[in-house]
Design a protein around this nucleic acid. Sequence first.
DNA 1: CCGGGTTACGCTCGGCGTAATTATT
DNA 2: AATAATTACGCCGAGCGTAACCCGG
Lengths: 289, 289
Amino acid sequence: MLTYEELQYFAAFAACGTLTGVAEKFMISQPTITRAMKKAEETFGVPLFHRTKNSICLNENGEMAAEEIRLLLKQSDDMIARVRAHDRTARTISVGTAAAIELPGLVSRISRAFPEKAIATEPGLPEELEKGLEEDRYQLIVLPYDPTDLRRPGESGDSRAGALFARQIGEEHLMFFLPEGHPLADRRSLKLSDLNGENLLLFSTVGFWGEIVRRKMPDSRFLVQSERYTFEELIANSVLPCFATDLTLRGLHDMGGRRAVPISDPEVNVRYYLTCKASMRRKLAAVFQ
Amino acid sequence: MLTYEELQYFAAFAACGTLTGVAEKFMISQPTITRAMKKAEETFGVPLFHRTKNSICLNENGEMAAEEIRLLLKQSDDMIARVRAHDRTARTISVGTAAAIELPGLVSRISRAFPEKAIATEPGLPEELEKGLEEDRYQLIVLPYDPTDLRRPGESGDSRAGALFARQIGEEHLMFFLPEGHPLADRRSLKLSDLNGENLLLFSTVGFWGEIVRRKMPDSRFLVQSERYTFEELIANSVLPCFATDLTLRGLHDMGGRRAVPISDPEVNVRYYLTCKASMRRKLAAVFQ
DNA sequence: CCGGGTTACGCTCGGCGTAATTATT
DNA sequence: AATAATTACGCCGAGCGTAACCCGG
């Protein structure tokens, strides 16, 4: 039977057409290649080459064998990659989250439940997260809605809903921060549409909030900042009205004298749901307490 | 990278569960298996075993790796088989024939056209032959009808008909052989239905003739003989009426005093058509002259 | 004669088996 | 004590590189 190296030599010969070339490519002596080709021919048990005294090239069998060997080498590499990937996913829990910032307590809750596992968190849009959960790229995802709620608009007809298990783990509320002197700064509460048309500063690392406000305030322009430092600098050095959520506020001390005004639209007062496949509920029970 | 043997050892270990068992199965020393398993673990780069001081078994990664390796071994074997099959079909012409006996001149005609190729002939029913031609198991087939004749009943609507090329290469006529004194022995010609209900001896290596007569003589029973010697003995030592074709007669000297009576049904006076895929017509032109 | 393939030959070290070791039942 | 895995060690031969050879352009 041919070794992995011999298969490589054969594939390389099909690509380059000369034994010397293959020897140089692999930095070994040329007779080794001669021997490998002989062994290949012997292994297949059929002629693979057309030979003259000082030249050699693949015949029709050889061309086919080369194609088959290329495939086999790929399959071999893929096999190892699959096992490695399997190992990796077995020792880490992948969490996808729609929340722009780390939900307080989420990671510690998981690491307490599975002390021996690594935790990989990754932000993403809800749609991508649901897809990733379906395809086992994530074991857990955080969604800004209850995916098991059948009254939920949109994909409520989706049969997958029944295959999920979800539980609320937090909430987040978007607010306006309006500079002193802004005509609406004194209001107890506002709707998104009240500021439609104005330019606003928005701190967000994912498009989740952006999508909502863009839909509800089609005439506004949003200065989206994903760098926290830049966002803070702009807060301090401008009089632009801006968005912030109660969760982002935790690390944000100075809003440049702006007044916080709650927003009444239900879309921007979200509840986060920690979600897993229903089939994984038992294994992940400790995470849900 | 793992050798073919090491992959086999791993697969065998997954099947038998003990290193000693694998060593015995392959009739090699047990430390060799230990080393092979170590090398496998090293190659994959992830733990594959759950070990105690004197026991070893596959962990979850190992189970997956074993499954992957089984697949790879199969792919490897299949690869070699495919190349061998490719070579075989390249150096032999496979001919499927519906004619019960060698059509005179067919083989010599092919070997004259392709002196360097081996010729493999194989009997079969027309339906199987057409399928085999379609799937390239045959390069040529002999059919008892013209497959390109669109007036032909049955699958005339079949679009494949246009993809075939056929040319008549012979014919064969079934006859009754009736013992002296049989009430119909003196007739110049008979129809199959004339003897419906009588038992008849039939020599045939394929079901082709059998199918026809069974359809046209539903009340008869046929004593089908595929052994030529047995058939001849029965001819000599019985007074059963029997079938024979003009082609089979060539080797048959003594019909036990029976009278030959031609059969007028068109179904049993067949013309044979040498057939190939239309796409192969050019390459096989020499066979068709 | 140079580029490329094959054959011959000697050496090295990868990998085998034997045997000793350790642990478990 | 028996069974099973691992470790240690020495030997052998598969397989490498060097070198010589052959052939066609």
